[in-house]
Write a protein that binds this DNA or RNA. Sequence first.
RNA 1: GUGGGCGUAGCUCAGCUGGUAGAGCUCCGGAUUGUGAUUCCGGCGGUCGUGGGUUCAAGCCCCAUCGUCCACCCCA
Length: 421
Amino acid sequence: MTIQSVRGMRDLLPEEIARWHHIENTLIEVTQSFGFREIRLPLMEFTSLFARGVGESTDIVEKEMYTLSDRDGDSLSLRPEGTASCIRAAIQHGLLHNQVQQFWYHGPMFRYERPQKGRYRQFEQFGAETFGLESFTAEAELIQLSAAVFDALGVRDDLRLEINTLGKPADRAAYRLALVAYLQPFASQLDEDSRRRLDTNPLRILDSKNEQTRAILENAPDFTDYLDAEAIQHFAGLKNLLDILKIKYVVNPRLVRGLDYYTHTVFEWITDSLGAQGTVCAGGRYDGLVEQLGGKPTPGAGYAMGVDRIVLLHEALNGETRSEAIDVYCAVMDVAQFGHAFEWCAQLRKQIPGLSITLYKSAGKIQKQLKRADKSGARVALLFGEEEVSKNVATLKWLREDKAQQTLDFAALCKCLGETS
RNA sequence: GUGGGCGUAGCUCAGCUGGUAGAGCUCCGGAUUGUGAUUCCGGCGGUCGUGGGUUCAAGCCCCAUCGUCCACCCCA
């Protein structure tokens, strides 16, 4: 048995990389244009950071982390998400002191889950976080930013924005009590998962897909009755601003998913084109989290995009993209010409930065060489035979357009390739 | 963790009721001695995921196991 990649950890092969580059570059460009700054974070942290940050009782911390013992006995974990690390770093370096900060980061995250479409054990997230703003304007801008990203990628029409408010922690606690009190008498009629959540995380029962459970939920207490005035005002302010910005959304009172740390706003961008894992971006406000991780009380809001899912969606909507082709394919007829060809290629790379030149390192018949040049996707072929070397020139042949073949000295070749690249 | 589908050449897949392992694409060579894309000819390529069982005989049937995909769960 040959060695395979670890389950849920994928190789991205050269032919699919063009799409990834395009998407990553777009994400970075648009996010930078909103004034967010990059922060780079370690892949590993003390396990306790995630236990405190993500929530002890979440599935992520309970059973999905890659945890190992360091040599001195410390418990370390591969990061399952980015927000906790981001806050840890910001606190550690004093970046949150009396100021608004906006960061972005991207990179692999790790969760031990059963892989399926759009869900991998190593997956890429692109996150954006805003600290120090109590106002709903923070969420509004994050949503505007995410919308701009999806616009730029041409996938926005396929997405819907769902928003909800979870109010303040006190509102949530009160509602939680009321919900449990309502559901308890029906406990025996709930599906198994929901029954279990009655103790652990009753709010998530609201999101159950089980029909009977949903029927029971019809008459459950309404969350909005438990929101205090400030929470209602906060949410109303956000909705109003989104309306002005003409960003369409639907309020989904059942949107209670996500991690434990959310307060007030939660939102998700969802597609129906990817099967079961349709959430492409999720985020919200997490006002208590900085304090919970040892910092001074600091409001925060942010989101994480699932880059793997965005790539899948882009592929589903836009089909094949052309892979990144080389520009120049250089071929020699006989081994005697290699020295000449190697030197010309080296000089060309110096003269024309950004030009991609492949030198085919087996000599051969001209038909063979051109056939290979054609298949490489190169725009032009450079040919070196006995004649070219003796005259110190190159034969340039256009492979993609109807232009006459040329024989050029080095200066003329540089000019020609420089103009077209 | 639970359920279902699928594992045959590098890739996509045929393979009938159990009876000698197939095609297309790719790759290599030739038709073509300095001009590619089309066409034609030839060639390389296999522990049929793995291990056991039934049988005169297993790619096909049975059991186990691994991998993979999809879904549940959870999440981005």
